[in-house]
């Protein structure tokens, strides 16, 4: 026997569910576990400690690494970039996501060194790859318009690019494609470390070498972000994670000496100065090994 879906048939359940939702919303007492089960599944909970959207770790921004490189006074080197002509090679979502991270880091580097015409080209590539990955939302279309009208303003471009990556990250999380967001982060982080390690070989800047050593904990964090997807994505994904784990064994040999010093807070400026000190000790042999391994990982990403 078939049943007709009349207006009242549809409206009654709708009103009932609306009342359920309003009832939950108006309840001032803490929600019972069974009311939040669906959300608890989405936002993993472990006792009283929960992960922020399934991420217990943050990865340093490639845009900031580019800024730190510029501050050392090392001149611009176009050879470090991944040529835009390679984009047609990236046909899988995995490769596209990784190289979206790579090109984002390139864009940050170009922007820092005032290479704005080239930055516009790389921005175009980021736009195309974002569309191919299906992460270009209407908000990003507005950001693209902002980019077009601020092409000659370095600081504005930096803001726009960071907003775009933040929106993409949020969009991917909303749509349960968190792994794509993490792969983009991985591409950006590897490219940043590639820049640092190549520059350390040519310039022997202690500041750059220290920055490399400081990637020890971010690398551990990155591996922890990727680990839940091991064996569930593709052979390429698993291979990348294995390469990063091998790299982490080299980083394990780096000594980081930390000394706590009480911070100073200036309440009127809403500012706290963190006075604690960290000393990174990295041997030449470790630096060379890191350079070799990062180059191999980076090549497997961009080829």
């Amino acid at each position: 026997m078939t049943k007709k879906l009349t207006l009242s048939n549809i409206l009654l359940p709708f009103i009932a569910s609306l009342m359920m939702i309003i009832g939950i919303g108006c309840n001032d007492t803490p929600p019972k576990n069974n009311q939040t089960n669906n959300l608890d599944e989405e936002f993993q909970s472990t006792g009283g400690l929960i992960k922020l959207n399934d991420r217990l770790f943050s990865i340093p921004s490639p845009l900031q690494v580019a800024s730190l490189v510029k501050e050392t006074g090392i001149p611009y080197n176009k050879e470090l970039l991944n040529p835009v002509e390679r984009t047609s090679r990236y046909t899988t979502a995995f490769k596209q996501a990784l190289n979206l991270g790579v090109y984002g880091a390139n864009l940050g580097y170009l922007n820092m060194y005032d290479q704005l015409p080239d930055a516009a080209v790389y921005f175009g590539v980021v736009k195309i790859m974002s569309k191919e990955l299906g992460i270009m939302s209407s908000i990003d279309e507005k950001l693209l318009e902002r980019f077009e009208s601020n092409k000659s303003n370095k600081d504005s471009i930096m803001q726009i690019v960071s907003s775009m990556y933040k929106n993409a990250d949020a969009y991917l999380m909303d749509n349960e494609r968190n792994e794509i967001g993490i792969i983009i982060l991985t591409g950006g982080w590897v490219e940043s470390l590639y820049f640092l390690s190549q520059l350390a070989q040519t310039n022997k800047s202690q500041e750059i070498i220290n920055r490399i050593g400081e990637q020890k904990y971010p690398l551990d964090n990155l591996i922890e972000l990727l680990r839940p997807y091991y064996g569930k994505q593709s052979e390429e994904f698993d291979h990348l994670l294995e390469q990063l784990v091998d790299l982490a064994t080299v980083f394990d040999g780096i000594t980081i000496e930390y000394k706590y010093v009480p911070p100073t807070t200036y309440a009127d400026k809403k500012l706290t100065v963190i006075n604690s000190t960290t000393k990174t000790i990295i041997q030449d042999v470790q630096l060379n090994l890191i350079t070799e391994q990062v180059e191999a990982i980076r090549n497997s990403i961009v080829q």
Binding site: I50, K51, S58, P60, S61, Q64, K166, A170
Partner: peptide, 14 residues
Amino acid sequence: VSDGQQYRALINAE
């Protein structure tokens, strides 16, 4: 400049 990541969670009081 944002680091390009957003950290969020639905949390209860405890």
